[in-house]
């Protein structure tokens, strides 16, 4: 049984703070930030129920949320692993060996790009340029950028995440205090 789709009071206060940035009646502007919060809060993905909940919070039609959530690549519309290893594969990362990084990860975790490991810990994703070409090859996990990857470094990163065992979100690092 999944937990109830509802923000706690603290998060509601945060959502209201975000809405206040925009002029009266323009609360839809808060959609992207609120979807990030919702995704972080509800198991790393946006279920139809979560999206309907966000729609009700912002007083917009559910389809407006579906339209937006399905447009942006950072929102997951299906369940994902706790750590999504997003490996950049565009030009500079490719020319500095991102294909080897992906192959190594696939072998190490026994899954293909787009799949989630059986223990639900890792999902491998290949992504387009993350603006870290100077640190190529690189991967992102949650809010963290891991740059200048080597296969050894990669092994360490994966092991550290495994030991930590926590879900990683883009919104990590004292999200609530700084927004």
């Amino acid at each position: 049984m999944s937990k109830e789709i509802k923000f706690n009071e603290e998060t509601i206060a945060l959502v209201n703070k975000i809405i206040k940035r925009y002029p009266e009646g323009k609360q839809k502007s808060a959609l992207l930030p609120v979807l990030h919060i919702a995704q972080a809060e509800f198991d790393g993905w946006l279920s139809p129920e979560t999206m309907e909940y966000v729609a009700s919070l912002l007083r917009i039609k559910p389809v407006e949320v579906f339209e937006v959530a399905s447009f942006y690549s950072m929102y997951n519309l299906k369940p994902v692993g706790k750590c999504i290893l997003e490996v950049c594969r565009t030009s500079s990362c490719w020319s500095r060996g991102s294909e080897d990084i992906i192959k190594h990860l696939e072998k190490k975790l026994g899954i293909k790009v787009g799949e989630t490991s059986k223990d639900g810990m890792f999902t491998i994703k290949s992504v387009e340029c993350l603006g870290s070409c100077g640190g190529a090859p690189m991967l992102q996990c949650g809010a963290s950028f891991h740059e200048n990857l080597t296969l050894d470094k990669l092994d360490n990163i994966v092991e550290n995440y495994r030991v930590e065992g926590k879900r990683k979100s883009y919104t990590d690092q004292d999200f609530k205090n700084t927004l």
Partner: peptide, 10 residues
């Protein structure tokens, strides 16, 4: 008065 469909994905 109530649109329930739209353009999804990209």
């Amino acid at each position: 008065d109530n649109r329930v469909h739209g353009m999804l994905f990209r």
